[in-house]
Simulated assay, not measured.
Amino acid sequence: MTEGLLRTPLHALHLELGGRMVPFAGYDMPVQYAAGVMAEHLHTRTAGSLFDVSHMGQVRVRPRSGVMADAALALERLVPADIVALRPGRQRYALLMREDGGISDDLMIANMGTWFLLVVNAACKEADFALVKAGISDVCEVEFLSDRALIAAQGPAAVAAMAELAPATADMRFMDVIETEVAGVPCIVSRSGYTGEDGFEIGMPAPQAEKVARALLACTDMAAAGLGARDSLRLEAGLCLYGSDIDTTTSPVEGALEWSIQKSRRPGGARAGGYPGADIVAKQLAEGATRRRVGLKGEGRAPIRGGAPLFSDAEGTRQVGHVTSGAFGPSVPGPVSMGYVEAASSAIGTPLFAGVRGRFLPVHVVALPFVAPTFRR
């Protein structure tokens, strides 16, 4: 079943630790370890977990002129985020846009001082690299960093572990990025993650990934966690999964991601528009969209999975949307979902009904996130 799948630099370590391996985005990845998804999820919240995210894509963007403002302006051709104002040592969430207002991918952009680091989703990385290169290679050198690994250390014990192994990380704030050594290995470290917990994402040369991972796992209360816990953690944090909660058919406004479009890039701003789909997004910012991504909370313990239709009535006569992600939230505890509904049904508290195997289960619209983040601001 693993024939033809790619392997991350930590593959042998996953097998050693008893990881249950599954295909994911073309890679053989651990979905869980012996403790199970729920235990790994809760351990991340109360202690600390290590996640292998080396399947993600890493791209270096360097201005040909040597002037970072040139590269920032070039990147703003592709994304609606304010990259010009992104200071050295900081990173920002952004969206690669399409002419029809849809989203090609979401990504992180970090200002490394003389170049930008882009971290993109695994399933989209080849297409993203081609898109970025085609869009800005007149101004920038665009290089895919195929020799890098990426791991995430998340949770309170992970913060303590990083302070021990890389003292320079102790004073970092949420979305700070630095170059420092972790367990003696030169790394790029950002104080960020995909769990809602305080923590770090750590990039390093692929051959030294196992050394860093083992050093972190040797620290007090640290344990390995797989894709299952990563998914339930990000869902509780109200974070989008590309391909499920956002994709080429969803706009930033529909996806409730307006916060990622800074004032300078909005209509009337200093550098408004200039990216694919800008006119469509500007219209939706002014008038609203016809549908909206919302949080949904059900009753009982049965999770309502992605794909379930949402209705305005218990008889299922009028569909108003659908679920895009759903699972049991161990920290809630209870079933939590996200999905898209008509704008008229998106207000907090709106009662809806999810179609599940011929039944119509009551849910109601709730504010996101389901679990408050612990990022260090």
Rank of each mutant, 00 (worst) to 15 (best):
G113S: 05
V67K: 04
E126T: 14
M56Y: 10
L131N: 08
V37I: 15
G48T: 05
T46Y: 09
F129E: 14
R77M: 04
D147A: 12
T114E: 15
M38G: 02
G36M: 11
I83H: 02
D70Y: 01
S49C: 14
D128L: 08
A152Q: 05
E99R: 15
A71E: 00
T114F: 06
A74R: 01
A163F: 10
V61N: 01
V159T: 10
L107W: 12
M38V: 07
V53E: 12
L86F: 03
D105T: 11
G135V: 11
M68W: 00
F129K: 10
F144S: 14
S146L: 11
A127F: 07
R90W: 02
D70R: 00
V142H: 01
A158P: 11
G101S: 11
A163V: 11
E141S: 03
L107I: 13
G113V: 09
M112I: 04
V119D: 10
F116A: 03
R77F: 02
M38Y: 10
I109S: 07
V79D: 07
R148M: 15
D82N: 12
A39P: 04
A152P: 02
V132T: 07
H43T: 06
V120R: 04
G135L: 10
P63F: 01
C124D: 13
G101E: 13
L145Y: 09
E143A: 07
S146C: 06
E141W: 01
D70F: 00
R60I: 02
V84G: 00
